[in-house]
Computed example of a mutant assay.
Amino acid sequence: MNRRVKLYIIMVLSILILSWETQQMLPVEAGDQHFIPEESIRLRILANSNAPLDQTVKRNIRDAVNTQITTWVEHLQDVDDAREIIGANMADLNEIVAGELEAAGSNEPFSVELRETAFPTKLYGSRLYPAGDYEAVVVTLGDGKGDNWWCVLFPPLCFLDFSNSDAKAHEAEGENSTGEDDAEEVQVSFFIVDVFTNLWDKITS
C-alpha cells in the first residue's frame, strides 16, 4: 500500500469521525423539552465549600428557594412579570436562606441577588447550551467556593438538573468560584488522535 493511499484512508476516516462527533452534540432548539428561552431567569447557588454539611445546606436552600419562586411564577407568561415579582420579594428569599442556615446550625454570611452572571457551556445529554451572561437569582453561601448548582426558574425547568450534566467552561466566571465549575472543565479528548495513531501503526506495520 503506497503512502498516498494511506493518507487518503486517514483523511476519509477523519471526516467520518468528525461528522459523527458533531451529530452527537446538538444545539437546543425551540420546541425541545429541554429548551431554555433567551428570556429566562435562572437559579444559581454557590456553596460555601465541598464539605458534606455545606453541600447539604446548599441542596436544602435549593429546594426551598425553588419551591417558593415556583409558586410565584408558575402561571406567568412574561419574563418581565417574573422579574418584577421576584425582585419585589427578595426579602422573602433572604429569610428562606437565613432560615435554612439557622436550621443547619450555620452562621455563615450569604447574599441573594437578582443579576446577570456568567455561566459556562453546558452539555445536557446531547443538547448544548452556550456559555454567556444570563439573568439569575444568585445565592452565594459563605466563601462561595464549593460545588454550585443551577436550574431555570422561569419558565419553571428546575425539574431538569443541568448541574449534573457534562460541561466545560469556555470563559472565566464573573466570580472567583471554584469547585464544580473547575471540575466541569473537561479535558480535550484525544480520541481521534488515538484512533489515527493505532490505525497508522497497523498500516505501517
Rank of each mutant, 00 (worst) to 15 (best):
A104C: 04
A169M: 13
Q33E: 14
P27H: 12
E21M: 13
T117N: 01
I61S: 00
C151G: 04
D81Q: 04
D201E: 13
A47M: 05
E95F: 05
I15M: 14
F191Y: 14
S106N: 03
L199A: 07
W149E: 03
T178W: 09
V152W: 11
A169V: 12
S111W: 01
T121V: 10
A30C: 11
V112Q: 02
K6H: 04
A104E: 03
N198T: 14
D80W: 13
A118Y: 12
Y8S: 14
V137W: 00
L46S: 06
L114E: 03
E100Q: 05
P120K: 01
V112F: 04
A104Y: 06
F154H: 06
N176D: 13
L160V: 13
E39Y: 12
D81Y: 04
V5D: 10
V5S: 07
F35T: 05
D32C: 05
H75M: 10
A103N: 00
L123M: 14
Q55S: 07
I17C: 09
S19P: 01
S177I: 11
I96T: 00
E100D: 04
A88K: 11
E175S: 06
C158V: 02
S189A: 09
P37W: 12
L153W: 03
F159P: 13
L18M: 03
K58P: 09
V112K: 02
S106G: 05
S165D: 08
D133K: 12
D166A: 11
G146L: 01
G105Y: 00
L53M: 14
D181Q: 03
N94T: 02
G125R: 06
L53N: 07
E29S: 09
N94I: 05
E135A: 09
S111N: 07
D54K: 08
E38P: 14
E180R: 13
S111I: 00
Q55R: 08
A172W: 08
L101E: 05
V112Y: 05
D80E: 14
G144A: 04
P130Q: 12
F191E: 11
S49H: 04
V188Y: 10
I45S: 00
D201F: 15
I86P: 04
P130V: 11
V73K: 02
V188C: 15
F159N: 07
E21P: 11
N2F: 13
N50C: 02
L199W: 02
N89D: 00
G87N: 05
W150P: 03
E100L: 01
M1Q: 10
L18Q: 10
E184V: 14
D182A: 15
L128D: 07
T197S: 12
I96M: 01
N176M: 02
H34M: 15
E108D: 02
Y8Q: 13
N48L: 06
S189V: 04
I17W: 04
Q24W: 06
A118I: 15
I15R: 08
A136L: 04
D201C: 14
N50Y: 06
R115I: 14
N94M: 00
D161K: 12
V57R: 01
V28C: 02
D166F: 10
S163D: 15
K202T: 15
R127I: 13
G125N: 03
A64S: 08
A51N: 13
A104P: 00
E108Q: 09
